[in-house]
Nucleic acid binder design. Sequence first.
RNA 1: GGUUCUUUAGCUCAGUUGGUUAGAGCGCUCGCUUCACACGCGAGAGGUCAGCAGUUCGAGUCUGCUAAGAACCA
Length: 876
Amino acid sequence: MAEQIPGTDTPATVNVPDKPALEGLEETLSARWRTEGTYKFNADTTREQVYSIDTPPPTASGSLHVGHMFSYTQTDVLARYQRMTGKNVFYPMGWDDNGLPTERRVQNFYGVRCDPKVAYDPGYRPPAAPAKNQRDWDVVSRRNFIELCEQLAVEDEKVFEHLFSTLGLSVDWDMTYRTIDDTSRAVSQRAFLANLASGDAYMAEAPTLWDVTFRTAVAQAELEDREMPGAYYRYPFFAEDGTKVFIETTRPELLPACAGLVANPDDERYKPLFGKKVTSPLFGVEVQVHPHPLAKPDKGSGIAMVCTFGDLTDVTWWRELQLPTRAIIGRDGRLLGETPEWIDTAEGAAAYAEVAGKTAFSAKEAVAKMLAEAGLLDGEPKKITHPVNFFEKGDKPLEVVTSRQWYIRNGGRDEERRARLIRRGQEIDFHPAFMRSRYENWISGLNGDWLVSRQRFFGVPVPVWYPLDASGEPDYDNPLLPSDGQLPVDPAADAPAGYDESQRGVPGGFIGDADVLDTWATSSLTPQIVGRWSRDEDFYAKVFPFDLRPQGHDIIRTWLFSTAVRADALHGTAPWKHAAISGWILDPDRKKMSKSKGNVVVPTDVLNEFGADAVRYWAASAKLGADTAYEIAQMKIGRRLAIKLLNASKFVLNLGATEANVLAGDASVVTNGLDKSLLARLEQVVGEATRAFEAYDYARALSIAESFFWSFTDDYVELVKDRAYGARGEAEQASVLAALATTLDSVLRLFAPFLPFATEEVWGWWRSGSVHRAAWPTAENLAGAVEGADTEVLPTVGLALGGIRKAKSEAKVKQRTEVLTGVVTAPEAQLARLREGLGDLLAAGNARDLVLVAGEGELAVAEVELAPAEEPAPQA
RNA sequence: GGUUCUUUAGCUCAGUUGGUUAGAGCGCUCGCUUCACACGCGAGAGGUCAGCAGUUCGAGUCUGCUAAGAACCA
């Protein structure tokens, strides 16, 4: 628990180094925090005391990126603030090593390829170096492959943990988890089975987006549009009376899969054809012409060929017009080797033989060639660029194939559920608020349920078996489910209850579902995984719903949404109270950083060069949601601030300020008007910084603290030096030491969330314990000192000091040059303030005398007479 | 095409419920080795708040339109 009353620590001796420095603080202090358990979560707590953070675990098999430091720092700043307000902060970290990025990294790192048909080799050792050619890569079993994934992931995680630790994240490293570990797999499978039991998950055979490279189904959330070159091929179908009906398509290779033609119902050109039969060229297949509103009259010839399936619009037409299924593209992306049954003419079969077994690309060329040779191609293909669906990690266009897959209901086919999920979103405070529209937009645009089965290896297996009937056919309608105690289960290796392994794959026996779950199906459960759902309900109730979900805006549609879907289905609530959405890192030219652009910067370099506090300053000066340039200059400013904090603290403490001078109730010692003014401003700063933090506007809290701190060092400290040395007596000295110590105490606390290393270092010079377990400052201890204080005294005296400095600056003399006399003109109210700090002003300006004259307008310093410059000492 | 965001000093950004003369840092210019800090200190120059129209006693701020840029979704 943070202690709430300043000044009650065990008294500590003051021990200020001669040469304070930032170098090395990261290593020593992060090690100390780890040993002392500074950021440990205390499970003996109530929900009200807890501030829980559901951090999306990074993929450690990906590369380190400055973006990691950016967004995770922003979260850490919020966590540290909450901890200082007395909250018991639950801030674990995890690693998302479940899924395709890890698979790919393992393949390339070791030079291996997974084939589930290969038997497990317990003594397998990967090659020392990967073979250059992929054909020479080792082929390993699924289990060996998974073992390699786990080994490599652990190594990658160490690198991330070291980075985050160096950066000063106040994570409780004892609670680290992995989305592929036994617990996560069990939770993922348990949640899936719960969804299945409640009807929130189901299996269906349906057209599915399919990546032919990875040979896996792909969900809507993993899609991206890419502008690709293509061409419209124009060729005719033949009506019964022999007239030609021209269609234009970018995919002539799908002509043998044609299941109908569609035109817009209002299109006068095609109205007479609706309901009529036409025959396809080359293949001689008879299909019907249908009206449908999705057909665009201005696209191509206005009448489209529907194939099963060229794209998602085809799927809509196929479903709504109840067209026959004529699939010819296989899961390998090639056309079927055998002539389909619906092509029943000799000419058609001959034409099909020309394309059988070809890739879509080659088949397109072959069909175009046949059409041209038959004189059916009307004109040259018209080159265009058009958006094509890709798997975000893939490099070939997606095909649509029909397959049996598992789905989780996400509202894509259910208006009532969509509305409910939008309401869940409204239970979450988005920061910034406008990010909620991304969430709502995405839900409104859903066109199907969430496809969660993936035909991959390294992932959480779908925890289901199917009984085989007497002829060896699986009974998909009556899956065999594991008991809760069996989880996590691997249906490929474990037998279902009531069977034994010898019955696998034999008639009357069983088979395991071969698929794994989409990685999002597991990573959407981070609140359940880390919050110990289904394992420790008491614990879960203390952290769920989580207080905060920090993440980037690019994954609102995926991570944020899917997590909301699961929490809604499992718990009937939103998973979090607040969502803090970070912006992106752009390179200095305002371009998004990405590996392909080659503009990615390695984070460790800047950490070494400027220090963690400097990098954190850069990250914390950016507001939530704001895309931010990667700016070395901003880090230099942060570094300057951190060094200034060390130096100013050293000075204040060397003036004699100690813990005993920090105000703790009785403020009668503060008698000087300038000191009262400083503390009154401090009170404002504390209030404003607190309000900013409560609104999740840490960047504003930082800038408020920062500008106060600079005026403290530049003006206040300069003004009071003389008095602090004791030149004006003990009472004046006691007043200034109280102001200095109290301000330093508060400033360290105000900066602690942003500059954890520099503040902790200074804290250790004169206080016991950690500043990070100290209380966030309040105005309580200032109350006595600021009563009736005038906040304007300090800036007014500062203005006059500036006038004197300017006179010296313009005379090009040293600032310590003596002022013989000068005149300050200002309205009477300002002069009254000046008199409060006149002694300090004279001392700081090294002035013998200043005449205060009442007058209109702004405060002005004039008629400054300077002592003659000393003769430079003659050169020896 | 739809949704959302952005546009303020040379650069990067603040600017709260509309309220004196629009702020900061960097950069630039000039000066100062002042006993915390040269990784420093002091001073200075620099803006038609993208444009147009409106609401208002009053607009960087509110409304509408236009322009440019960005992201997300189709």
